[in-house]
Every structure is written in structure tokens, then in C-alpha cells.
Computed example of a mutant assay.
Amino acid sequence: MQIFSGRGLARLAGSFVVGAVIGLVGTGIHRWMQPWGLIGALVLVLVGGVLGRAWTGSAGVLAVGLGVVTVTGLIGGGGPGGDVIIAAQPIGYLWFAGAIVVAGAAFLPRRWFSEAAALPRDADTDAP
């Protein structure tokens, strides 16, 4: 697939939006029922990375990661009254660093994302 075609750019933009939504939802749930909220948020980041990889390859993984990091960074800072959404505690630091989980999708085998049909099995060589 060509990245700089109209469809490729739309997929990249969609991957960024998916990452932004994941960053928003993950920030909201990372402190819920510790540690399960954080684990769920990190799994969501990994699933987003796999989706980005399936859509546009490595550029999609980068777009999802940028979306997660951008939104997490924007809403993770202090508010006007000094309130914070991501507290300076170990679970908050793990969530900030957790966007790196999306990079795990970049190391998955390329054939998992291939649109080529699998080779048919030979009935003569298959064991009963």
C-alpha cells in the first residue's frame, strides 16, 4: 500500500485518532481497580498498535503511538488549579511509559499482517 496516496493518508490519520482515543480512555482507567485498570489500558495500547500495523504497517504503529503520547501528555499535565489526572506515583509513571507498549506491535511477524492466502496443506503428507 502506498502511504502517500489519499487512502494511505486517511489510514494514518485514522491510526492517530485511534491512538488519541486510546490515550484518553487509558488515562481515565489506568487507576481503576489497581493494577487491573493499568493492565487493561496497556493491553488497549497494544491492540491499537496491532490495528495500526494491520492498516498501514510501521507508519501506523508510529501514528498510534504519537496519538497516545500526545493525548496522555496533554491531559497528564497540571490543570488550572494545580489538579492532575495522572498522579506522580508509580502507577502514573507506568502509564506514562506504557505508550512504549505500542512499539511491541512493530516487532510482530510480517506474515501475521499479510493479505496473501495461506498455502494449502498437502493431504498426502499430513499425519492422521
Rank of each mutant, 00 (worst) to 15 (best):
L9T: 09
D124P: 01
A118V: 15
L94K: 02
G23F: 02
S58Q: 09
L119A: 15
L62M: 13
V25H: 09
D83E: 15
I22L: 12
L42A: 06
V25S: 10
L44K: 09
A10N: 06
G57I: 12
W32S: 05
G57V: 14
G92Y: 10
Q2E: 14
G98V: 03
S114C: 13
V47P: 03
L38S: 09
L24W: 13
F16R: 05
G28Q: 11
T72H: 06
D122R: 10
L24V: 00
P35V: 02
D124W: 06
I86N: 02
A41R: 07
I75E: 11
S5W: 04
V43F: 09
A105Y: 09
A127T: 14
I22P: 03
A99E: 02
T56E: 14
L38P: 06
T27H: 07
A54I: 01
E115G: 15
D122E: 13
M1G: 14
I86F: 08
G28T: 07
A10Y: 05
W36G: 09
G19W: 03
A87I: 07
W32Q: 01
D126I: 04
P80N: 11
P35W: 04
I3C: 00
V18I: 15
V102N: 04
G104V: 11
L108Q: 07
L94E: 07
L24T: 09
A20V: 10
G82N: 08
G48Q: 00
V69F: 12
G82L: 03
Q2R: 12
A123H: 13
A103P: 04
